[in-house]
Design a protein around this nucleic acid. Structure first.
Lengths: 315, 315
DNA sequence: ATGAAAGCGCTAACAA
DNA sequence: TTGTTAGCGCTTTCAT
């Protein structure tokens, strides 16, 4: 491969001059600049990015730790990140974790190994204690709130949104309310449960099903709920696809929505628009954009993104 | 930052020995290996990846050129790519192009600049003549068929699938059939039109609408089609979300599906499952997986991924 | 089995 | 304004 020395030789200048041209440095005589440009053209030269990154100690690349890559919520966050990165001329590498602790740590080591200038953690399995030491090597931004000052946060106030959603259902006269969640051990599930108890006083365990991710899961969840002794009159789903599955089950049983069963989802997905399901839009695209801005600015600010409830015909 | 020299000094060995330990070379005395490991531990050392990539001339990273990152079809391909990359321990960088030629070329230059070992082109704006010269610098795999021997291909036989879909509609007695597409100038739109003409003899321009991407576009498209003098009895949509929009419009007009209007979509998306829309599943996840395998193997094979038609209640 | 030293391709401090 | 040169941090001959 042709390198900077070849160009210098061909153009009859020193490598520093070539470097200066490459980085549009001001003090280069026009004739030399022309000569360098001509040599670059002639030899079809492209600088080696690894050498540049090595010496500069930065890469304009960001790693994004993502538990699942086929999940609408994380896709939305990623979408926001990519938009902002494109705008700011940063590169995004997707780091799928599956919530495996070793994988996450492996990715954090890539920050330390100077592959990325920063890392966005969309969701995590590790404790902050494990993660924080790596913030020495680059900026780390999370898509959740934490008080740790080493970590930037672009987050949504899940707890408030859960309170709001449950309150909405209660206001509409629903006393027997069920809900679904994704991972049982996740922080947001905890908040969801807390919010439920806050609004409805107590939680009968059978009104909560976790590990719901897709339409089929929603269908099955609704089936289980509707076979309970005391049927719920409303369900809060942890996603619009899950809600869509519930909707389908209800329809298959000739249940009227929202009179026989009210359903509200999350994330404002196409399927929810299509089926007319109310939803809590957490504006995850914005969460992603903001997270990306924070890493780029190496900021450790805590930025809350507002959510909004979109009412359609299912509640 | 602590480097390999620091470790060598602390361990009382040469840098080559440290390097050998780092790369688990066989011929290192046990006591020295221990000493090195201890020094690494003590100094909390992580090798600089840029230096390694520079000297090795390879990065185990792949760039994926993607026109849109919030598009279900490309998301599916990306999903397949990420699965395979995770399995083979490669890193994936997402390169959003928006079908802008300069962007695509910019990304191809990153291959030349040794940032990636290979590039996957999920879709492109540039001619092959522009792209092919870059295959000198790393393997380039496309998610479409091309006869150019420099390019590996993981593709689906769109034309056959379009023929099949139109034939299915014709067999069900539909003579007046409309269809939508995404970008008018794309190759697949050309094939779609050709397939239509092959099956139905000719195409009245008003039965084809392009630039349909989302549910709303589908809704509007259906509205336009159903206001034609001679209404179509079936529509082939270029995606399940678009098909979902058509479904909604039909419902809003009290049209019965499939008797008044048959709809068939593409890609087997959740919304299609939810609404019971027939679809042509191009198995894009598999296309992505295969594309990733090809780059990793530096293969230039042409691999065709089979499609399948999933009949539900909308035709 | 180990170390010295050359070199990957580039930037930047320094001198001129 | 330009060139010389010393690195950036690592791998890999080539001796020994």
């Amino acid at each position: 491969m042709t390198n900077i020395n070849d160009i210098a030789r061909l153009a009859g200048v020193s490598v520093s001059t070539v470097s200066r041209v490459l980085n549009n440095y001001k003090y280069v005589a026009n004739d030399k600049r022309e000569a360098v440009l001509k040599a670059i053209e002639e030899m079809n030269y492209t600088p080696n990015k690894n050498a540049i990154d090595l010496i500069r100690g930065e890469t304009r690349a960001i790693g994004v730790i993502l538990p699942y890559n086929n999940n609408p919520a994380f896709d939305q966050i990623l979408n926001g990140i990519l938009n902002k990165a494109l705008e700011k001329d940063f590169l995004i590498t997707v780091l799928p974790s599956n919530y495996r602790k070793e994988k996450e740590v492996e990715y954090l080591h890539k920050l330390k190994s100077k592959l990325y200038d920063g890392i966005i953690i969309t969701s995590r399995a590790n404790d902050w204690e494990t993660i924080i030491p790596f913030s020495k090597y680059g900026s780390i931004v999370a898509c959740e709130y934490t008080q740790h000052k080493e970590i930037g946060c672009s987050y949504l106030d899940r707890y408030s949104s859960y309170l709001d959603a449950f309150q909405l259902l209660k206001n509409k006269g629903h006393d027997v309310v069920a809900f679904t969640s994704a991972r049982l051990e996740s922080n947001s599930t905890k908040q969801l449960i807390d919010a439920y108890i806050e609004i409805f006083g107590e939680l009968q365990p059978e009104y909560h099903l976790s590990e719901c991710h897709c339409l089929e899961d929603g269908y099955e969840a609704a089936k289980k709920f509707m076979h309970l002794h005391k049927k719920p009159t409303a369900i809060y789903a942890n996603g619009d696809e899950v809600a869509g599955g519930m909707y389908l089950y209800a329809k298959s049983q000739q249940l009227k929505i929202p009179t026989d069963l009210a359903i509200i989802g999350q994330a404002n997905q196409p399927i929810g628009i299509g089926m007319g399901i109310s939803t809590v839009d957490h504006q995850l695209t914005k969460v992603g954009e903001q997270a990306c801005s924070l890493v780029i600015k190496k900021s450790r600010d805590k930025v809350k993104i507002p959510y909004q409830i979109i009412e359609r015909d299912s509640v």
